[in-house]
Amino acid sequence: MQEALNDLEESGILNPDQGALLRRIYGRELFSVYWELRLLLYAGILTLTTGLGLLIAKYFASIGHLALLSAIALGCAGCFAYCLRRGGGFSPDKLPAPDAAYDYVLLLGCLLLGTFQGYLELRYQLLAQYWNLWLLGGGLWDSALRENALVFGALLVAAGAIQTRRGWKRHFLPVHLHLGVNVLLAALVSGVGSRGIGPAYLTGLLLAGFGSAFYAQRARSFAFLLYALLYGYLGVTIFVFDNSRWDVEGFIFYFLVTSAALVTSLVAFHRRFRSAE
């Protein structure tokens, strides 16, 4: 890399200050431990919340449920209050974290909220036999929850689209889309094998897949092409296998033809959009 830096500096692409800084970075005279310290902090917060959870479980009988729930709720509210106070108010744009602790206090608040919900359900059975509604993904193969997942995924994608259109927190869009598209496509795939409504789910899957692939091409974010093709292929394969009476040769031929077609399409896609750049 040092040779390349010399060359780029001599050719005038990099100025001497840039060249000097990059040479120091690649020569390890300037070494950032930003990500290592973040990892340490992240691990510390996770270990701490696990330890606190176990402490609660251990002293659960002697402390009393209401006291514990109050403590968790207070801790959670304290974290969110800190974030609201230090965050400097709402801004539609991305704001830098006011201090190093900010992100992690927010994470701690969210984890405590999850603990609060879990404890509430465990002790007071708020949702009783519908407890797995708390865990959307766990009940994906249950038809009622599948519909919830469909609504949740669609809402996430729609929320991302609306806020981008309105110019609010545009940097949230990748999180909305990665999560929303995965939940939506997984829910649609899970319904393809259902009797009666399978074709409707397949149609939905193909439409959502095309949408995801179109976004991938438009935003040059090829993870969405991966989601579209993987979920789409899985859904189509389930549908074909459920609705055909082929013998083994037929199924093998199906895989041969479809994989050859997809490889050819991917090569054409790459050539057209120069995906590596």
């Binding site: 340490l40 691990a43 510390g44 270990t47």
Partner: peptide, 15 residues
Amino acid sequence: AEELTAAGLFLAGLA
């Protein structure tokens, strides 16, 4: 439980 709590505090504090 105590060990994990102490370790978590130590790691976060160290960072």
